[in-house]
Amino acid sequence: MTEQTPAGDAGWFAGVERDDTDAAAAAIREGRADAPADWPERALDAGFAADADDYYDALHEATVAATRRAVREAESADDRQLVHAIRAMDDLASTTNELAERVAEWGGTLDDEPGTGVAYARDLAARDPETAAEERVVSLAARVVALADERDAEREFLERTVSTVAPNLASMAGPVLAARLIELAGGLESLAKMPSGTVQVLGAEDALFAHLRGNAPSPKHGVIYTHEYVRGTHPDERGSAARALAGKLTIGARIDHYAGDYRPEVEAELDERIETIRARRDDGGAK
């Protein structure tokens, strides 16, 4: 019995050692059988488990491990969706702005009270064109509005996805910065494997290379600069703030990738740390 491969009519425990959770989880995920059987009894007969309680304990461990792994794999595929979504959002944003400018410029020649941006395009798109030229402007404005709506939908998708893919990172960094970091790293797994010093300067590659070539100071922060904890900290302390933030974001990305549960204490530690850094400045009174 024990030498059976998990095929045909063998249970998940066939050929698996009682304490080998990896093998058991793999058997749960990959095995199959046409019909169920009295697996608990068969496992006892095969010497896999000592008694029924022992069997069910092993089954619990194996099914939880198998499901945890399968969930993680499925969700790590989601982080790739995230990368595409944030790139699409960027493309939409720049195209929208470019065309909105065109609309404003063109609209200005036909309109007594021209405006700017997407708001103006929205305004124009709702009008009834009277001339052939107006027809073109109004139609173009409608495209701008549609692109802007798509950009917003992309962002909404991103916000929803990132908080399930990376709950800790998303809650500390905010959804857009979290997605941006995942994109720059090339996925959540690569982000989780980066030293925090690298995370700190992600997105500042140009400045970093200039520094390595010897013609610039080393950059203190990359995209994490957009975070209020860096931007809103006094310039003298920004380096410390960026280091502290990058440290906690790295820990968050690791928990997200390896465990997946949300741990509010990491975020609380970050808040505290930033408070301390900012207090140094306030207490010192200098500047």
């Binding site: 249970g11 749960i28 199959r32 059987a37």
Partner: peptide, 20 residues
Amino acid sequence: LFPLLKDARKPETYAHVVEA
């Protein structure tokens, strides 16, 4: 409680786990 990430339309993918 034993969780199984499986498709209920394919019982053959969990019949090696779920008892009769």
